[in-house]
Design a protein around this nucleic acid. Structure first.
Lengths: 321, 321
DNA sequence: TTGTATGCGTTATCAT
DNA sequence: ATGATAACGCATACAA
């Protein structure tokens, strides 16, 4: 391995001068700087991240933690983060699984964006207390080193339920999300409120898990007790996909017997038949805003909690009852 | 920051003893080991990755480089890698963009899996020569520190074309992939061979880019010159999705006027109507095999190039002509 | 079994 | 403008 020491030797200068030259410190003459750069090139010098980090206590790498890599959900979100961070000279790495929490602990990362149930609030607070900068996308958590960038779940759920009611439906199912999920809880709570506010109507909740399987199971249950057109609010789109599949080989039709609206407006929602009505928001923007806040936090500028607004996208999965 | 030095002081031992105790070195008494561990706990000691890495020249972190985070394609692949690596005590991070190549260069990573056109062959050879261990998923490249884990593209493309011909089609389009893509080139080459081998038939190629837009454009071209049922082999599924969308508001029907088979068998392919015929392979297995080979390479065990086999999944997107 | 001492490659302070 | 040198936190060869 070739180090600045080798460069110093070959160039006939001290390692300090080499370091200065390599880092563009103006204290060194243009002439010697050039020579040093040339030598570095010739020797194929590559800086050593570990040494630099040990000294500077900064890696210029940020992490995004996801519960899982699966789900067509994350692409745009991550792209939004990456672009924003790249502009500012930071690199982004995506991590998943409790095992990899050590990267945050041990200082591989200057900060992280969390969208990952596998982190407990306690653990995040612990990291924050140790000086790590965090942006949380999936919970409310208060600490000077933590900023929240949350979806406006309540607005979305309200839009969804009102949309169904507006189409004259009087019988409503909500397919819920995993217990402990902040987004799921917020959505459910707002859905219940909207139902209450809109007078007497038949209402039931089916436990879901945000995955296709639970969506399919919900569909089974719905058709098993079917006695006339129903409306369904699935707390995310993924479950709706499962529902479509489960209904495929039955006589029940989406948009006719079962009217459904989802949440997230994932890409697939535009391709399934009939097109799915869903709550939409810019995933890219969500990622970009999160990244921006994290950078502000790290660079000591003022950072604030942010909210990502949502809107309803209509679809043929909902018709008049 | 609390270091082993602090622990040593509090426990009344030397830093060497602390280091031994922390690393489970049997040279230290169970008694002192316990005391040291207790003190470490009390002080909330967290090891410093940079220091450890500087000394050991290993991070126990592996990278997967992707051209982009977008596309519903990667979830399972990455999950396969993560599981395999996790078992062996390695962490996985996902990286994208040339900017982040420095992580490989500067020693943040012990090795990497490459599925990323943004790496040139030269760059990869450079890294390999510097001692980095690599697994490539998207090219043929020979070096003692590089192993290939490639899809059997040729078999897949052959299956696809034969499937179309078997259904009596005499007019065939191939929608190609981006120039320079190994997978695209392999598939195209095999498709051409299969066409030649199967006697005279009308054949044309439409340049594609592996994204939805180019699929939609291809659909436009096909209907603009439509004069009777045609068969289409899209070199990946993503383009087929674009094709479905473009055809949606036209009188032309998939599986009736336009018979199409894709490649990759992405999840969406099972949900679009009619269900897409496509070339399938286990993405999870691809990831797991790649991870396994990378680990063998790193641990100096013998590693070999591997091939991932593919199969045809039928669908209603292809019917008899 | 435990302690001492050295070095990993870099940055940065202080001399010169 | 350049050089000598002391950290940074840890692992480990060697001494005790």
């Amino acid at each position: 391995m070739v180090s600045i020491k080798d460069i110093a030797k070959h160039a006939g200068v001290s390692i300090a001068t080499v370091s200065y030259a390599l880092n563009g410190n103006p204290k060194v003459t243009e002439e010697t700087r050039k020579k040093i750069l040339t030598v570095a090139q010739e020797l194929h010098y590559v800086p050593n991240a570990a040494a630099r980090t040990l000294k500077k206590r900064k890696t210029k790498i940020l992490g995004a933690f996801l519960t899982s890599f699966e789900g067509a959900f994350y692409g745009e979100l991550l792209q939004g983060m990456k672009e924003e961070m790249g502009k500012r000279g930071y690199d982004l790495v995506i991590c998943s699984g409790t095992q990899s929490h050590r990267m945050l602990r041990e200082g591989f990362l200057d900060g992280a964006i969390i969208l990952d149930r596998l982190f407990s609030d306690e653990e995040l607070l612990f990291h924050a207390t140790r000086g790590h900068k965090l942006v949380v996308l999936d919970r409310e958590l208060s600490h000077p080193n933590i900023v929240q960038v949350l979806l406006d779940n309540k607005a979305g759920a309200t839009f969804a339920v009102e949309y169904l009611l507006r189409h004259g439906h009087k019988k409503l199912y909500v397919v819920t999300g995993p217990t402990g999920s902040y987004d799921a809880e917020q959505r459910l709570q707002a859905a219940r409120q909207t139902v209450e506010r809109n007078g007497p109507l038949w209402y039931a909740e089916i436990p879901g898990n945000f995955d296709k399987e639970s969506g399919a199971a919900a569909a089974q249950r719905i058709i098993s007790e079917y006695s006339g057109p129903v409306a369904v609010f699935c707390l995310n789109d993924e479950m709706v996909i499962g529902m479509y599949r489960a209904l495929k080989d039955t006589p029940y039709r989406i948009g006719e017997h079962i009217h459904v609206v989802g949440f997230d407006h994932i890409e697939t929602a535009d391709y399934i038949q009939p097109r799915l009505a869903s709550i939409d928001y810019s995933k890219r923007r969500w990622g970009a805003v999160a990244a921006e806040q994290l950078l502000k936090l790290i660079e000591g500028l003022g950072s604030e909690h942010e909210r990502i607004y949502v809107s309803l996208v209509e679809g043929e999965s909902v018709k008049r009852s």
